[in-house]
Nucleic acid binder design. Sequence first.
DNA 1: CAATTGATCAATAAATCTATTGACAACTAG
DNA 2: CTAGTTGTCAATAGATTTATTGATCAATTG
Lengths: 218, 218
Amino acid sequence: MSHRPFKQRLYPLFARVGHALASDRRLELLDLLAQSPRHVEALAAETEMSVASVSQHLQVLRNAHLVETEREGTKVRYRLAGDDVLQLWLSLRSVAERRLAEVAQLTREFAVEGVGEAEVSRDDLQALIDQGKIMLIDVRPRLEFDNGHLPGAVSMPADELPGRLETLPKRRRIVAYCRGTYCLFADEAVALLRREGFDAVRLDGGWPEWVAEGRAAE
Amino acid sequence: MSHRPFKQRLYPLFARVGHALASDRRLELLDLLAQSPRHVEALAAETEMSVASVSQHLQVLRNAHLVETEREGTKVRYRLAGDDVLQLWLSLRSVAERRLAEVAQLTREFAVEGVGEAEVSRDDLQALIDQGKIMLIDVRPRLEFDNGHLPGAVSMPADELPGRLETLPKRRRIVAYCRGTYCLFADEAVALLRREGFDAVRLDGGWPEWVAEGRAAE
DNA sequence: CAATTGATCAATAAATCTATTGACAACTAG
DNA sequence: CTAGTTGTCAATAGATTTATTGATCAATTG
């Protein structure tokens, strides 16, 4: 009549997923994979971890079925297992940002100068594009842009931006987006553009937030 | 220019939340608190853990700000910190149930005999109540019912049910619900009622799923 | 087929986590 | 104030997790 035997086998399964989320390293990997699938080596380079270490963390994520793999010749490509995993990650992040004062404090401490307060909301963005009033630039690395991007966006990786300023319109407003709420690329791009006399603002959130809300993408 | 210093301090904060979700014991506590706030002793009794052990797990949850406390005389009442925490827990559970085949296998293994396939969806429930076509019973412990329950539900704790059969209608259909998808109380109640000749089905999901969807409650 | 590239595996030491035990602190009631 | 109840804290031993190192494996290239 007690349900203990059931619970004793059920909760460890849930905890397997929880355990996968219990390391800052793994969360960083998950966050990168939320942008686009990647090879192990690329993940290691971006996170400044050893390949072996990344590989082991990926095994933990795979054991919890949060990521999947696909061989591509001599390389192995990892990707999120599905949109529900993205939801879970954003849900965890949202709890942390709402509950832990340290998160807000940290974003304040690392805030980029000269960005301004204004942000374009995701709800407003579509109308602005349709009206042709703005130019939307994706300042993430091209690999991530190629994997998927907001409709109408132009790829303008952060490191290429300084050399491509003359291709940008002075009259139309420029909206920049990147990897999401905690990514600084868009802030830095906006700050640079404003210094150069452009009318630039950042989008609230980035690619993962857009996808998680089920909005159209290219 | 590298964002590493920022990331190196940001992700450990997210991982603090992840770590809180990394233990089957803590997830069980969280699941109970999703039903209603509770005292430490009650949690220990229900989970068959020592009070000291429960207390320590609760400190971890509190450190991640997933739960909050309130003193009540000599006792301490713990509760979920907010609806976002409930969302996170259900999101994790949903990933586990979609991704881990073992979960489906386990629920099959512990399935209650004589429940039947039919379930009432949460979307359909309101209309059925309004039409007066069904009786809705909440088979959770009374403490949880008192903390909040579905509109129109009658408290009928699982252990009292056998002695209160004559208070139930033979003509109207009876819909039972409990702590949620993985709680067996409703299944057992339905099986009992059907053996006794009642027309009974269970609700899809339970109290937490209802609340998480923002539906009206009493 | 040998050499190279990319990723995993195995072993290990350091760090962290867990359950248990018993002591202690906060509060209530008499 | 004292005794009793409830919960937390501190210490500890056993288990688990982590990063590192070097070996191994799989696929491609010469």
